[in-house]
Simulated scan of single mutants.
Amino acid sequence: MSTDYQQARASLGVRLRGLRFSCPSGRLTGQQLAQRLGWAGSKVSKLENGKQTATPEDLRAWADATEQPGVYAELAARLAGFESHIRSWRRALANGFKPLHEGLSAEIDRTSDIWVWEESVVAGLLQTPEYTRHVIQRYSNLLGGAADIEDAVRSRVQRQEWLYRPGHTMHVLLWEAALRSLICPPSVLATQLDRLTGMIGMDTVELGVIPFTAPVKIVPANGFWLLDDRVVVTEDWHAEVWLDDSESVTLYTKVWKTLRESAVYGADAHNVISTARQALKSH
């Protein structure tokens, strides 16, 4: 978790404690507040000490229980301010996959250049619909709470129109593992690899592959998208993280450029993809 995010969560916790102390009918202990809310006392402690992220419902209940309902708007604004950078999958998927895809699509629409690093999956803008379907299904099985897989597939496919607009360039780096991970049936992966082969040489796509045998200067992990020079979008198992501070953008740019030193392009990239394609015949 980023330091800025943790500091913001801790600051919100201090504010919540202050509300408990300033309850109009008298200062409340943590246990008294927990009883009013019907919560375990540990939850009050975790929220006040920045160890747990409040939900909007938690904040409204806290404001009401401390007899200060008018502060809810302020609390909600604080939460929105730091959650806009770390978007919990659990909460986001309560509304399905499609809104998640549409949110990123809106940001991509105003982007001219995208730099992508993916270590274990083919980048979304280069995916075939069937490959996309299997990837999203795997996440749905893991995270639950989303049944709109077909809507999400259509949304991701529509996003690919970006590749065919003048003035756009996608700079993609894939580790060889992304060409071999059987997140889908071999026949689906074969079609996906054929598509990648066809994209080599496209005016709007610069596709590099880092072979397993290539020496690397940093660990090939943690996929991310860098949109122009303003925001980085990366993912972890618990959340999608958006970073827009200059230090983070500079760091991820450096990471991408360092990884690029190990990549092959053109005919060499074609050979790596073709080798992965041939290996599928044994499955």
Rank of each mutant, 00 (worst) to 15 (best):
Y72F: 14
N95W: 06
Y131S: 09
N95L: 05
E102I: 02
A65G: 04
Y72N: 12
L126H: 05
Y72I: 06
G96T: 01
K51Q: 14
G30M: 03
T53G: 01
E48Q: 15
A54F: 00
A123H: 10
A123R: 01
I136T: 03
W115E: 11
F21D: 11
R87S: 02
G103L: 09
Q35F: 07
T132G: 04
R60Y: 15
V116K: 02
R90F: 04
D58K: 07
D58A: 05
S45R: 05
R133V: 09
K43V: 04
E57M: 11
I86L: 06
L79R: 03
G41V: 01
I86N: 02
N141R: 09
G26T: 08
T66Y: 03
R20Q: 13
W89H: 13
V44H: 02
A40Y: 03
G38Y: 12
K98S: 06
W89Y: 15
G50H: 12
I114C: 07
P56Y: 06
H134R: 09
P56A: 07
N141M: 07
N49L: 10
G124Q: 12
I136K: 00
K43R: 14
H101Y: 11
V135Q: 12
T132H: 06
E74N: 07
V135R: 10
R91I: 00
L125T: 13
T132C: 12
K98W: 01
T111K: 01
S42C: 06
E107L: 09
H85C: 11
R138D: 07
S120D: 15
S25E: 10
G96P: 02
A77R: 12
